[in-house]
Design a protein around this nucleic acid. Structure first.
Lengths: 334, 334
DNA sequence: CTGAAAGCGCTAACAT
DNA sequence: ATGTTAGCGCTTTCAG
């Protein structure tokens, strides 16, 4: 592999001049710069990012930690993160932690060993104490899609407004005329979604009885089970809000299993708006969390730490919006 | 950040001894090793991977190039790749090329600048000439899930046996009693799937008329359009094979739109077995391409290049299997 | 505008 | 078993 020394020798100048020419610095004559550029071209010179990073203490690499890239929500934001990062010449080191705390710790050690310039940590992929320590040691970190209550208040955070998301779901159901609704939620992580949902109901004078709130675990299976319980209740709800689209998939299944129709017998609304929600039938009405914007906010927060910019608002809330499709309708006898 | 020099000074030995102690080399006394380890612990020493890589010419990093991590097939294999790589202490640099040739070229330049130890290139993420050149220059590369016909024969390849996959689909439909079938395929990339499918039909003395073969583009929308055309045909097929699950989703849609039932009126079989195919209703019968195994084969091929091992078989074919769910059944009047 | 020299943190011959 | 020395390829003062 050709190095800067090779160019320097070939052209008959010093390494310094070569650096200056190659990195677009000012103190090189145009003629010399041309000669150097031409030579670099000819011998197929490619800068060694490693050496550069070592010398500069900057790697243009950021770590992306998430529970599992196979969970449909993450790839969509991961891709957006990677796209935006690329334009700033950054590359992404992918870390699937499988919600395993020990693994998360191991990863962040590795990332620090590699001198990553910063790190984006997505929900549930790490123990708070672990990353908090690194953050205090100076590693730029931003939390993304964080949902736990105990968010360390001094760590930058880019997150969907889940309270508002829950509220939007409730308002939509209310607008359609539903008065007897149920929710499937993965608490405590998703408590905000439930709170937003309830707050709107309350304002409308509607209360959510305890048995109309079922615990799920974000995956379809749990949505299925929860829905079965809801449908077994003497007074069935006319609409169900599942706090993740995947749980809504399970719910849909359970409803069909019972010989009921969505949306005619029961309306169903999810939250996330993952890509496949468009493809299932009936297409799922859901609350969309803008993923590209989430990515953009997260990177903005990260870059401002990396570059030492003024770090005005430390939390960026991304506004969700309602995505009406075919799984919601007015109640039968509304 | 503490360096090896700090340890050397603190303990009062040379850097060499510290290296030897820390990297588990033999020529260090046990007592000294303990002292060094203890000191490293105390001052919070963390090896600098950059410096080490520069000195050794090895980064323990591999690039993963794919069209889009948001396409449901890729995250599943990407996760498996990352998991397996991690156990070998490797990390993954994620590269979404969006099937953009220029971007792919830019990426591989960057990866080489970073001295990645190797590179896994997934289908359609790069131009052949571009990576071929790097490969010949010595960059370890393995192609994964490659489907183009003009596979450069000397580049290691880990791929599903798509011919066999197509054959499995055909055999399943045949076994159920279908005689009048159709296929939606994204040619030329997926020609093998079609060939495998046809070969089995032929053996059974069934020919596929031209209008029963529709061109799709791997995404649901194209499956929808293609199916509409198939259903408009005077003699409707009793079963449809879509060469990707996503196209099968679109097909399902179109069939329902026409007021027909899957599988009672028309059977539907896909190929890929992405996670969500379990969740749609009816759950999709499909041909599974084992993703973890694909990942494992790809990394095996890559590591053997990196380590300069004997590179016996240069192509690893991963055997698909049939995943029967609810979208296929015997034809109505079979 | 150009060059010499030191250094980023670690590894690896080669002594001792 | 331990130390000396010379790199890895680049950046960055500081002189000229």
């Amino acid at each position: 592999m050709a190095t800067m020394d090779d160019i320097a020798k070939a052209v008959g100048v010093s390494k310094t001049t070569v650096t200056n020419a190659l990195t677009g610095k000012t103190n090189v004559s145009d003629a010399m710069r041309q000669r150097i550029l031409k030579c670099a071209q000819e011998i197929g010179y490619r800068p060694n990012a490693l050496a550069r990073s070592l010398a500069q203490g900057k790697t243009f690499t950021i770590g992306l930690m998430l529970p599992s890239i196979a969970n449909p929500f993450y790839p969509e934001v991961a891709e957006a993160i990677e796209d935006i990062a690329r334009e700033a010449e950054y590359q992404i080191l992918l870390c699937n932690t499988h919600k395993n705390v020990a693994l998360g710790r191991q990863y962040i050690e590795r990332l620090m060993s590699r001198w990553v310039d910063g790190c984006i940590i997505m929900e549930e992929s790490m123990d708070t104490a672990d990353f908090l320590q690194r953050f205090q040691q100076g590693l730029p970190i931003v939390l993304c899609d964080w949902q736990r209550q105990e968010t360390p208040s001094n760590v930058p955070l880019a997150v969907g407004d889940f309270f508002q998301a829950g509220a939007l779901a409730a308002q939509h159901l209310l607008d359609l005329g539903h008065r007897h609704v149920a929710v499937i939620v993965d608490e405590p992580g998703q408590a905000l979604r439930l709170q937003g949902f309830c707050s709107v109901l309350q304002k409308a004078g509607i209360s959510l009885s305890r048995e109309m709130i079922q615990q799920g675990h974000s995956m379809p299976e749990s949505g299925y089970q929860a829905t079965k319980k809801l449908l077994a209740h003497p007074v069935q709800p006319t609409a169900i809000f599942a706090t993740t689209d995947l749980m809504a998939f399970g719910a849909l299944d359970a409803i069909i299993d019972e010989g009921l129709n969505v949306p005619h017998d029961i309306s169903l609304i999810g939250l996330d708006d993952i890509m496949v929600s468009t493809y299932i039938r009936p297409a799922l009405t859901t609350v969309n969390i803008p993923k590209e914007q989430l990515a953009r906010e997260a990177l903005t927060l990260l870059f401002s730490q990396i570059n030492g910019d003024q770090k005005d608002p430390i939390t960026r809330l991304v506004e969700p919006f309602l995505m009406v499709r075919q799984s919601t309708a007015p109640p039968r006898n509304g």
